[in-house]
Structures are given as C-alpha cells and as structure tokens.
Write a protein that binds this DNA or RNA. Structure first.
Length: 780
DNA sequence: TTAGGGTTAG
C-alpha cells in the first residue's frame, strides 16, 4: 500500500484557505523576488519561505523560473511537500493544468512515485482529462486503474457523481467516461462497469467498442452477455472483428455450441465477416467438449472462407488432438503448419510434449524437446514443468528434482505450478513430510501457495491417515484467505473414510451438502462408492436420489459405483438395467462399466454372459483396458482354457496394452492350480523381463503352488531365496508354509517359521495358530 | 492456444 504523506508527516502549519493570485501573472511576468530567493535557498537549507499558504504560488513561480526538474528535485521543494494538505495539492494540480498541463503531469507523478502519495479522486480526474486531451490513452487507463485499485468495487456511483458534477464541461470528458467503464471492466468489476455505462447512456456519452468488447468478454459466462451484445447493436457503433469472436466464445463457454455455429453462419456475408479469431474460438470450443473431428472440419472451413489458419488455430487443434491421445495426427498438423509457413512455437512444442507425457511416453516428449531445440527455440518454464511432471508421475521423483536443478542453473525460478508438481509427486510416494518442507521453502522465497498446492498436501496427509493434520492445514489455508472448493473437502472425506468410521465421514459429508456450497458430483461419488464397496446399496441409491433431486448431473463414475454395488450384492439383473439406462442420462458407458459387470458375471461362473458383454463393449467402441483383459483371462482360466489365456496375454502386448502384476497373478495362479509349476515360474520370469514388479501376492501364489503341488523342500528353498533377496513377503506367505509343514507333521519347522514370523513383527492371530496346531496334532 | 490437485473396475 502506498504511504500517504499526510498520515506520516504532521502538518507544520495550519491549513488555511488559499487565495491564489492570478496564476498567469505569477508565471508569465518577470521573476518575483521570492522565486529568486527559492533559487538561492536551493543552495542553502533555509526553508523559511516554505509556508504552505504561499506554497502554491511559490511552486508555480519556481516552475517558471527554475524549470520543473530543478525545482521539483530541489531541497526547498522536498521540504515543503510534506507539509502540503490534500486540498492544497488538489489546488496546485488544478492550477497547473490551466497554465501548463505538462507541469501538472510532472507534479502529479512526482508526488505519486517519489513520495508515495495517494492522490485524491478530483486530482486523478484532472490528470485523466489531461491524458485524454493529449490522447495518451495508455496513461489515461493506467491512472484510472490505479484509482480503481484503491477505490475497489462499488465505487462507481460516487465516482460518476464526481465526474458529472465537476467535469461535465471539460474537453475530452467523454473519453474519460469511456475509459472509466473500460478500467472497471478490466478489473472485472462488472457491476461498476455496467453502472458507468448506464450513466453514460443517460448523459448521451458514447462508449467505445473496446469498452463494450471488454465487458462482453468479462460477462461471456453469463446471460448478461446478450444484453451487452444487444446494446452494442442498438448503439450503432461499428463492431470490431473481436466482438463476434468474444460472443462466439461466450456461447461456447455456456455450452451453447450449436448457437455458436449458427451465429458464425449468420455473420457470413455480412459486414463483419467471420475472422480467424472466430474460427479459432469455435475450434477451441469443440475441442474442449471433446469433438475434435468437428473442430477439424471448422479448421478446414477456414480455407474455404479464404482465411489462413494462424499459430493459434494450429495450436488449439493440436492441443485437442493431444488431449484425445491422437499424437500421430497432432504431429501431422505440426508438419502441415511448417509447410504452410506458420512456424511452430514454444507453445506448439509444449502442447505436443504434454501430449506424450499424458500417454506416459516420455521418450516421445524428449523427441519433441529435441526438435524444439533444433528449431532454435529454448524450453521455457512450462516445458520444464511438463517434463518434471512426467518423471514424477512415473514415480521418478529424483529425476524430477534433477530437472529442477537444471531449471535453476538456467536462471528460471520455479513458480507455484512447478512447486506443486514436485509436492504432488512427493505426496504420491508417501514423502509427505518432505512435501511440507517444500511448502516452507516456497513461503521462504516469497511464493504464496495456492488452493492447488494446499489441496495436494491435504490429500497427501489424509491419504497417509493423518486426517487431523490435513484438517489443520485446511484451516491454515482458509486463514490465509484462500477460498476452498471441493478438492480439499474430497481429500478430507477420503481420509475420514479410510481412517475413521463411515458414519463419521457421512456426518462430514452431510455438513458439506447442507452448506449448499458443495454441489460437486465427485464428493457424492466418493460417498456412494464407499456404500457400494460395503454392499450398502440402499444407502448408495438413496444418495443417488439426492443428487437427482438437487439437479446435480451424475457422472459415469456415479453409475459405475452403483453398478458395482449391485454386483457386490449379486443383483446382476439390476446392474444390467443400470447399464442399459446409462444413455438416458446422456452418459456413455466406460471400460470400467463393462469391466465391473464382466467381472461379476465371471465370478458367478457365467462366462458366456461375460463374453457377450465384451462383444457389446467392442461394438460400442469402448476400448477394453488391461483390467478388462485381466477379467477375461480370469474367465478363460475358470474354463481351464489356459492356452487361450496365454494367447490373450500375448495379444495384450500386441495391442499396446500393458499387463500388470494382477494380470500375471491371475494366470500364474491358474497354472499352479493346473499343477503346471514350470509354466507358472516361466510367467514369473516373463514378468521380470517386462519390468513388472511381482507383488507379495505373486509370491504367495507361487509358494502355495509349490507347497500344494510340488516338493515342500522346494517351497522352503524358494522362501529362503526370497528372504535372501530382501523381497517383501506378507503374513500369508509365512502361514502358507507353516500350514504346509504342520500338515506334514514337521512341528519343528513349523515352530521355527512361527518364531521367524513373530520376530519380523507380524501380528499373530488365533486363526493361524489353532488350525496349524490341529494339523500338527494329526501329524503326530 | 501450453504446465500442477480429488472419485470408479480386475
């Protein structure tokens, strides 16, 4: 905040009303004695002349004699200034404007910039009129914006009153009115801007198209956009080519995409024909809604209108293609760009690099960066952030930190986003305390963590079970004036579900729902999913009804969780009905929808129904994922069609789908049950070859297989070798082996393993010990 | 027009 001189420096003289001598005679007659004295005083330190009563005339005279730079920077002036009252300063500015507007500007700027003075509204308007008269519109805007920053929203009525009462007859008054409306609009104080516009209409002052465009832009998310557009048409002022583009953008933002297209068509052949920006807006709108093909057709249509796509057109479309995962086509458009003489820029390369990053293809992202360097472009902070994010998401946090070092060595400063990426990956790897230190580092270097940063950390803490600390951080965030959205609440809700009881979580959820602030489907989805997982389908459906009553649109996740709940409670027919009804909600079934149902049929042993669903899925162009394939492999295993299962595993690789440890566990277990331990171990080796980390479950399955169908000594050897390799084993691995030895009556070995288990700190339950003792007794 | 945060299936 600017210091106000009058708040800091007490007045040395009482403020008296000023009686100004005719200024012209002071300035344009021969130098007065006192002015000559000022010149002397500049060399001495005597300030006896600096009585405020005379200050105005002294300053004016001084300006005439000494010239502005000598006077305004001189000692006398510096001593006098702090003792001037607001009213005196207003008067000086007023008078200076009449005699020499440049001096008024100089005086105004000097007080503001060197003395941190906050000028009155009246002085600001005087200066605004000087700028308007000189057509220095940027300065005019700047001076008004500074005033509005201090005045804040809701200040329009009083400012309009002042502008009307004291300045209505001034030259360039209309320009000031227009800029005032524009400045309000630029600060997103739209109600104030609308107030000024309404006043202007009453006073018959015309607004410029720039002001209208700015307001149209700020209101493009709302219905009021139409009123502004109609006002533009009614005013008869010529539209700029941006007016229609902003209007089209607004229609797209309000999801009125059909209306946007119709509007574009309407403008064809009229005075304001569609321009490149209008097309770009539509391309962006369609891409954001996921209709990249339609976006492409508009891209092509530009040529038909004799328009050439610019870098924005290409980048927008390439972005849409990248988000849709169509990297090949995105690259084609980059080549097309070059062929049409539009040079791909840093934005193009960043978009493409992110496209590859989204697909987890970091090598592709690097190729793009190399091309970027080859084209003579340098990576910017976004490029680095995309790369850091890519590494962090694949769990390679260290590589992310190395890139941060490189960034710093190249003189980039990490911003909030770059920090948040690092924080997020630390949280995901469970290194929440390190993430919290990074938060401190951010604050130390003066970066203010935002909602995303806090939400990430709250999520990290809650996921680790530290819900209380998460809630404390949430409070800290609110105390800093950061207004929460549903993200931090979802983190806390998940934490409560994980750590506390469902009832506790439900109470938190109900408080959020009652507050009326949380209308986010994700919060409902979290709660519904928990009920579904618990088999409490009644509660889940109840919440679903609440969503509909509130007019909140369910998402495919909502329906998928409900379908899961019906499957869990073995109401497959009901689950099937929900699948059939998905279209009625304007939703599309996803691979999760089908996989959930397919798994349920598989569990029921109805493999035929499972394959029927797979067919339906493919016919509806829903791509099966590696999870879908895992379910199908499980189904084939149930039918003992092991060769087909192995074939499907190979098909997955051919299709570019990567099996994970669960896929292998499924098929390995099947070969164990078929007593084909050789193939089971072969598959285990294949996992390692493909860099898939076997999970403790993999080893449980293998140990159990060897115990049941092989030689117990081999099982012991396998077990020891795993321990030697420091491979993480669970309680199940120990109990499997203990049970096997107990069953064979080898009490010593069983007791030895039991001791090892206790030593490792595993909890021992009665369910493990009693059956083993019974087995041992039988053996003896 | 480009970078960061939350929910679902095996």
């Amino acid at each position: 905040m600017l210091n106000r001189i009058h708040q800091c420096v007490p007045l040395r003289f009482p403020v008296k009303p000023l009686i100004l001598s005719p200024l012209s005679s002071l300035i344009f007659t021969k130098p007065s004695v006192s002015a000559a004295k000022i010149a002397e005083d500049d060399l001495t330190t005597d300030t006896s002349l600096s009585k405020p009563r005379d200050a105005v005339s002294e300053i004016l005279t001084g300006l005439q004699i000494l010239g502005p730079s000598k006077l305004l920077r001189g000692h006398w002036f510096r001593t006098v200034v702090p003792s001037l009252s607001l009213a005196q300063i207003d008067q000086i500015i007023h008078s200076l404007r009449l005699e020499n507007a440049d001096y008024a500007l100089l005086f105004f700027d000097l007080l503001k910039n060197e003395y941190g003075f906050r000028h009155s509204r009246a002085s600001t308007f005087v200066i605004a009129h000087v700028f308007a008269g000189k057509r220095r519109l940027k300065d005019l805007r700047s001076v008004l914006q500074q005033m509005l920053q201090d005045e804040g929203s809701g200040s329009a009525p009083s400012l309009c009153e002042l502008l009307w009462n004291s300045f209505k007859d001034w030259d360039s008054n209309g320009v000031v009115w227009d800029m005032l409306a524009f400045a309000y609009s630029r600060f997103e104080m739209v109600h104030d801007a609308l107030f000024v516009l309404a006043k202007m209409k009453d006073l018959n002052v015309r607004a410029s198209i720039l002001t209208y465009n700015s307001l149209l832009y700020n209101l493009r998310h709302t219905d009021i956009m139409w009123d502004v557009y109609n006002a533009i048409k009614a005013s008869g002022i010529p539209q700029s080519e941006y007016t229609n583009s902003i209007f089209i953008d607004g229609l797209c933002k309000q999801s009125l995409i059909q209306e946007a297209v119709a509007f574009l068509r309407e403008t064809e052949g009229k005075e304001s024909r569609p321009c490149v920006v209008s097309f770009n807006t539509l391309i962006s709108g369609f891409c954001k809604m996921g209709f990249v093909d339609v976006a492409k057709s508009f891209f092509c249509m530009m040529f038909k209108h004799g328009l050439l796509p610019d870098a924005y057109s290409y980048n927008t479309l390439i972005h849409g293609l990248c988000v849709a995962g169509s990297m090949e086509e995105a690259l084609d458009f980059m080549n097309d760009m070059e062929e049409h003489g539009v040079e791909p820029d840093v934005v193009t390369f960043n978009i493409l690099a992110k496209g590859f990053r989204l697909l987890g293809l970091m090598s592709g992202a690097w190729k793009i960066i190399h091309k970027m360097l080859h084209n003579g472009l340098n990576p910017d902070i976004l490029t680095y952030t995309i790369l850091i994010c890519g590494y962090c998401l694949t769990g390679n946090v260290e590589e992310g930190f190395k890139l941060r070092e490189e960034m710093l060595s190249r003189g980039f400063h990490l911003n909030i986003t770059s920090y948040s990426v690092l924080l997020s990956s630390l949280c995901k790897s469970g290194r929440v305390n390190e993430a919290l230190s990074l938060l401190c580092e951010m604050e130390t270097i003066g970066l203010k963590p935002d909602l995303v940063t806090y939400s990430t950390l709250i999520h990290g803490l809650c996921k680790q079970g530290e819900v209380q600390r998460g809630i404390e951080l949430y409070k800290q965030m609110c105390s800093k004036g950061i207004h929460p959205n549903s993200f931090p609440h979802s983190a806390i809700l998940l934490g409560l579900l994980e750590k506390g009881t469902t009832l506790e979580a439900r109470m938190y959820f109900d408080t959020l729902a009652k507050s009326g602030l949380m209308e986010d489907i994700v919060l409902y989805n979290i709660m519904i999913d928990r009920y579904a997982k618990l088999g409490k389908i009644g509660e889940a459906v109840q919440l679903y009804k609440q969503i509909i009553e509130k007019g909140i649109a369910p998402s495919i996740v909502t329906v998928n969780s409900l379908i899961y709940g019906f499957c869990k409670t073995r109401k497959l027919a009901e689950a099937g009905r929900w699948l059939d009804a998905i279209g009625a909600y304007g939703l599309e079934p996803s691979s999760v929808t089908y996989t959930t149902l397919m798994n349920a049929f598989c569990e029921e042993g109805n493999i035929h129904a499972m394959f029927e669903l797979l067919q339906e899925m493919e016919s509806r162009a829903v791509e099966p994922t590696h999870v879908t394939y895992t379910v199908v492999i499980k189904g084939l295993c149930k039918q003992w069609k092991l060769l087909k299962a192995v074939q499907l595993l190979e098909d997955m690789y051919a299709k570019g789908l990567y099996p994970d440890e669960m896929t292998y566990n499924t098929i390995i277990q099947c070969f164990c049950k078929a007593q084909n331990l050789k193939k089971a171990f072969q598959l285990h080796n294949e996992m390692l070859l493909h860099n898939i980390q076997p999970s403790p479950v993999t080893y449980n399955v293998l140990i159990n297989g060897v115990c049941v169908y092989g030689d117990l000594k081999d099982a012991d050897r396998l077990f020891s070798s795993l321990l030697d390799q420091d491979i993480r084993l669970t309680k199940v691995a120990y109990t499997t082996l203990i049970k096997a030895h107990s069953a064979k009556g080898d009490v010593d070995k069983a007791v030895f393993l039991f001791g090892q288990m206790v030593e490792k700190g595993f909890e021992i339950s009665i369910e493990i010990i009693v059956p083993s003792l019974i087995d041992c007794a039988k053996g003896v």
